[in-house]
Design a binder for these strands. Sequence first.
DNA 1: GCTTGTTTAAAACAGGTGTTTGAAAATATA
DNA 2: TATATTTTCAAACACCTGTTTTAAACAAGC
Lengths: 211, 211
Amino acid sequence: MNYKKENSKTRTAIMEAAGKVFAEEGYPKATVRDICRQAGANIAAINYHFGDKKGLYLAVLKHYQGESFETYPPDLGIKENEKPDEKLRKYIRSFLTRIMDEGHPAWFGRLLAREFTDPTWAFDILVEETIRPHFNMLTDIVSAILGKSSKDRIVRMNAMSVIGQCLYFHHSHPVISRLYPGENFGPQQIEEITNHITRFSLRGLLKEKAK
Amino acid sequence: MNYKKENSKTRTAIMEAAGKVFAEEGYPKATVRDICRQAGANIAAINYHFGDKKGLYLAVLKHYQGESFETYPPDLGIKENEKPDEKLRKYIRSFLTRIMDEGHPAWFGRLLAREFTDPTWAFDILVEETIRPHFNMLTDIVSAILGKSSKDRIVRMNAMSVIGQCLYFHHSHPVISRLYPGENFGPQQIEEITNHITRFSLRGLLKEKAK
DNA sequence: GCTTGTTTAAAACAGGTGTTTGAAAATATA
DNA sequence: TATATTTTCAAACACCTGTTTTAAACAAGC
């Protein structure tokens, strides 16, 4: 019922492994046996420390959520008096890095990207706690560029155009690697992709403003 | 071994139900029991008519693939001497309709969209048979607008920006409906979304050309 | 009629899933 | 040291998955 120590060795090992597996396989396909094997723990430990698979997923979300946005803050280096164009570039770079970066807390970004395309029961929590505030941040930037209210419908659509590009450049890997073997739009190309999306979007936005 | 009649009543009923379920749930989560229940057929019928679940999925792909691209041809109304701008608009509309439309053969589009974000074993077949030719069609349009070779890397990135927007406007449903209840980017808004993406993209592309 | 080939039906099978059990081991507490 | 508490472990449980079996119903040809 009450799950004891917060800093057990196997507990953190399980969370570490779970983060990796959940991000790679997605919640439904990820198996607790696989997670425990990678963590070097017994299957029952998952019940003992987290209650059940849901509890584990929730714990992983809650924990790495913070870590991810500490490492890749969406306003990374954004100064208040900076031009909206530059704000947009930094937002895009941060977004891309968060989901395409390799190594430790980048799982969370991929996990979030997964929830975007087919949500689990945890989606509502994620929307309120992380997606909404960060989407608002983007719409603010876009509305500043367009010179329109951030409540405007057109602002939302333009913001979605930006996010759509970012997400697709991430999970287009399977397609690209088959269509053009050798071609590579992977984590190493984050800078290049950032530049492309920023240019492409700023033009789409600027003309919209002029109209 | 040899699967008899091609026009059995239960056979077509199963394929119909399977298309719907596969598109809604995705291949892994879709269960043969669910499909057979919706088709009013026995579980064993799936083995008799299609061998196994893979065979069924393949049969569904092969069949509705043709039907989908007959209903929503990617060059819908495109005349050879038309301006590239108008070609792009029609391509985008066709793409959006194929995955967002309701009713009969629209499953296939959604099914394809699913394979884009997490591919199954059938992905390689789909790439060669449907994705490659249609992506080439898009890169041709884009390269005409940019005035660059369709083999150019920059052309591919711009094409991806277009497709990324289309895909995201489709599966952003869960996000949007939670962020802005009442707001709706459903099948009814296809025209509006087509206009937005076309304008947004044409501007992104045009300036790229001018540079 | 009978016989042959074809299609359906109920039940069982083998394997994988999340979860629980109950007793050991490890650790802390007195 | 002795006792109580916390943590691990192997095994089993109940359920769901795709698949197979075996027999029955159906249809067509003679």
